[in-house]
Design a protein around this nucleic acid. Structure first.
Length: 423
RNA sequence: GUGGCCAUAGCUCAGCUGGUUAGAGUGCCAGGUUGUGGCCCUGGAGGUCGCGGGUUCGAAUCCCGCUGGCCACCCCA
């Protein structure tokens, strides 16, 4: 019988990594809540239409990256590839925005994309994100960037390169798309294969091409297609970011892959991640998404960040806190005969709040004490024949290498004194 | 989805141009110490050589397919 392995593109989160992720997730929660964002959780499966309508039919995500299946009633469902559409659906569908505006929410959870896996790109991955729904002021674009900025700072991650751009409104984008097509069409013969395809499917993507960089340099600028309102909006965002002390790099070629963005878009890059995976996450304003999903027009802005990638950077930078030992106390019997007495003492210690491992296996005492070091315990409580006879225990300070025999009544006090003293 | 590299013990890896019982380090278990750890010594367990087929007298080694990982592209988290 072959062993069953985790499905392709998925990974198990073992205790050590779990601890690091918890640190990251808790840090994000703390920063988001310090700005008044509240936690939300939405389903992992959604109607396929949520993404085909929201994210855009001709985007890569919807075209070829979704895990889609039919339920027993023949409805098409999809494992969510991103979080914004579902969150907006949840907030507007429940009329949360009728109570306060804007609605500020944060979330964390698994997402799924069927791309070829490699480091930092898995079928199942984790994102933390926030959405600010119900108001269109540029100050809120700056606010969410500031949340992310503080989040990275709280993790101790330096060297973040924040890229910002404005895509303008739908009309601006249509105008720009036309300008790009006008520019590239005469050059079509000299384009690379990918670009020739992009010219007809998704002209904005032409700006991403590395091979035709020379042509990109001469392409029309997005900024020139923006109307007055979008220019003012973006100028205000840049001003607010500067006021917040955030270094934003204007990148006229930054075009995010999802159709629903309008005006402000941004991405966070870091150089310790190699090439294709240099993006830690991004976001932007998506004032048009609500209507695409059938809700009243509602302005909104938000971001999503990749937990696994950020963890890779934090690890490379050495900012991940050391893992806590599994237990601070180990209680062991000398022989199996003292198992019950030892178990009783372990209960006392746990009641007193000490994380305690019990080892009453039938093996040599020195092996059990070796185990104490392995779980990270700083105190060993040893119970043998003599101790049972006189209702006492040997309390050994594993760091100080000293020990004493104490009555059970003094066990807790003795152990907590040692634990308190060394920490 | 396209192209390339890789897959040997729990972990990190060696195994030359196919040759007999597949190795090391580390970890694990045990003994040295019939009640005392992080060092040391000794011994032991543990491997369908990713899976399936083919070539050959003989395959961990060569060929094909599959699965999985990694890298690049695509794109993004």
């Amino acid at each position: 019988m072959p062993e069953i392995a985790a499905p392709k593109g998925t990974r198990d989160i073992l205790p050590e990594e779990f601890t690091a992720r918890r640190w990251l997730l808790e840090t994000h929660r703390g920063v988001a809540e310090s700005f008044g964002y509240r936690a939300i959780e939405t389903p992992i499966i959604e109607a396929t239409e949520l993404f085909s309508r929201g994210v855009g039919t001709e985007t890569d995500i919807v075209e070829k990256q979704m895990f889609t299946f039919e339920d027993r009633g023949g409805r098409s469902l999809t494992l969510r590839p991103e979080g914004t559409a579902g969150t907006l659906r949840a907030v507007l569908g429940s009329h949360l925005d009728q109570e306060v505006r804007p609605v500020r929410v944060h979330y964390a959870g698994p997402f799924f994309r069927a791309e070829r896996p490699q480091a930092g790109r898995q079928h199942q991955f984790t994102q933390v994100g926030i959405e600010c729904i119900g108001e269109g002021s540029p100050g809120l674009d700056a606010e969410i960037v500031e949340v992310a900025w503080r989040f990275f700072r709280a993790l101790g991650i330096t060297g973040i390169r924040l890229q910002v751009n404005s895509l303008g409104g739908p009309e601006d984008r249509a105008r720009y798309r036309a300008a790009l097509v006008d520019y590239y069409t005469p050059l079509e013969a000299s384009l690379c294969d990918d670009c020739r395809r992009r010219l007809h499917t998704n002209p904005l993507r032409l700006l991403d091409c590395k091979r035709d960089a020379g042509l990109v340099a001469g392409a029309p600028l997005l900024w020139d297609s923006l109307d007055r309102a979008s220019r003012d909006h973006f100028t205000a965002v840049l001003r607010d970011l500067e006021a917040a002390g955030i270094d934003a790099i204007r990148n006229d070629r930054l075009v995010r892959g999802l159709d629903y963005y309008s005006d402000t878009v941004f991405e966070f890059w870091h150089d310790t991640l190699q090439g294709a995976q240099s993006s830690l996450g991004g976001g932007g304003r998506y004032d048009g998404l609500a209507e695409l999903l059938g809700f009243p027009a509602t302005a909104a802005t938000g971001y999503a960040l990749g937990v696994e990638r950020i963890l890779m950077v934090a690890r490379a930078l050495g900012t991940v806190p050391g893992i806590e030992p599994a237990a601070e106390t180990l209680v062991c019997s000398v022989e199996p005969g003292q198992a019950e007495a030892a178990a009783g003492m372990a209960r006392l210690l746990r009641d007193a709040g000490a994380r305690t491992v019990l080892d009453v296996a039938d093996r040599r005492l020195d092996r059990k004490l070796r185990g104490a070091g392995r779980v990270g315990a700083r105190v060993a409580v040893i119970v043998g024949e003599n101790e049972v006879a006189e209702d006492s225990a040997v309390v050994r300070d594993l760091d100080g290498r000293s020990q004493q025999t104490v009555p059970i009544a003094e066990l807790i006090a003795t152990v907590t004194r040692i634990l308190g003293g060394t920490s």
